[in-house]
Design a protein around this nucleic acid. Structure first.
Lengths: 233, 233
DNA sequence: AAGTGGTCTAGACCACTCC
DNA sequence: GAGTGGTCTAGACCACTTA
């Protein structure tokens, strides 16, 4: 059986994956250069480059100029998490979405929020607490601080018609940020808001978002018991 | 002020990001075609293509043949989670890594594991329970089921010298799988293994991995209290 | 049917890094 | 200094989708 030419980048990628899985190329070993593979597969070097570049992005290959390309010795599993709008997440499950503003004040943030947001000690921030419900049942409790100096328009918004989550995505699109996932033990306050028992494990997402180096908002989402976040690789 | 030519794909991407952030191109709107942008920026269409393709991968743009390219209306935040080897994670924090096998048996899995793994009702699987410690303190408890029909070599392995986590990554590289993150309330058994109180929230990662359509292993990782998983965007 | 993005090519030059 | 991957180009054809 003679191998057919491998002329498109997906086929090249599959073949490389196959060779790694079949131990033709072992973890830590160098694989042939782009030019050699292009000759072997009967395609252009750019095609091989695209295939290998994406495998390197996935953490499967390790590439360095001059050194060459090797199979990653300690493969990192790289999962991609999609974090949708809360409204989309709830309505995507066929449930009715609703948000209720529990608190809207301008106040001095607690020290840990101030540290995350890097604001001066005397800076007052907008503080919003919102409960999102799915089909009437508490879904997630949002505790958010916004820097009005970075987003002045926020001071005029009541968040009656639109939730803070949606308003910010619409008003401040495509910023950078960091995410921290963890678990907490519910306090009496959280138990009361989410309508669950005190002392149960809750899934938490802390997010801080920046634009042009300035921190816009810092938010903690505390999900209802049993919440799961899923992804595939 | 005259705009300089934008000739490399990263500069093109930055400029597109800038225009979206500056509301030159608004969510839901079409942006110019690749050919027009290439002319405007003074670069090749392939350069624009690479920039726009990656933005589409990130969920920022929505591209369709014939229709064109538009700014995503409901931007999904897409976070990338790196899930390293447990050893690397612990040693990366400068702590001593150690694993202890608490259980190694061949048994009938509980129904939920059997459902996840799609094995016949009478199939016996290898069951491993392992505690991983960081600097002597419990770090994560691993409860794993392995299908020996898919990975026959596993029956000969004692996991004394190498942890199940590392063995599988080394033996079965680069497979597909799905991940579920959640929070649980610690049971007495988990509290005892992890050396924490009963009834606290613990971060949990459930993972099922496949190769060639067959399910290799299903694992639950229960992390110590206070564990955080972090990523940036 | 036509227009858009998706891809491939052959060649070239550049940037980085190891020797 | 030399060799590798990283990128850009100009052109071409293809695949998909919408009008």
């Amino acid at each position: 059986m003679t191998a057919a030419a491998i002329r498109n980048w997906l086929a090249v990628q599959d073949e490389v994956r196959r060779r790694i899985a079949a131990r033709v190329w072992r973890p830590g070993e160098f694989i042939p250069h782009e030019a050699d593979l292009a000759r072997e597969f009967g395609c252009a070097r750019a095609t091989v480059n695209r295939a290998l570049r994406e495998l390197a992005d996935e953490g499967i290959l390790d590439r360095r100029r001059k050194a060459g390309t090797r199979v990653a010795a300690n493969p990192v599993r790289r999962a991609r998490l999609d974090i949708p709008l809360i409204r989309d997440e709830i309505e995507g499950r066929g449930l009715a979405f609703r948000h209720t503003l529990l608190c809207r004040e301008t106040a001095l943030p607690p020290p840990e929020v101030r540290a995350r947001m890097g604001t001066p000690a005397e800076a007052r921030l907008l503080h919003l607490q919102t409960l999102y419900t799915a089909g009437g049942a508490p879904y997630v409790f949002e505790d958010r601080w916004i820097n009005p100096e970075v987003v002045p328009a926020v001071t005029a918004e009541t968040f009656a018609a639109i939730s803070p989550n949606e308003w910010l995505v619409r008003e401040v699109p495509f910023e950078a940020g960091d995410f921290t996932f963890s678990a907490i033990t519910s306090t009496p306050a959280e138990a009361s808001v989410l309508g669950c028992a005190e002392g149960v494990g809750l899934f938490v997402l802390d997010r801080t978002t920046r634009r042009a180096g300035r921190i816009i908002t810092s938010v903690r989402l505390v999900f209802h018991p049993g919440y799961r976040m899923h992804t595939e690789i």
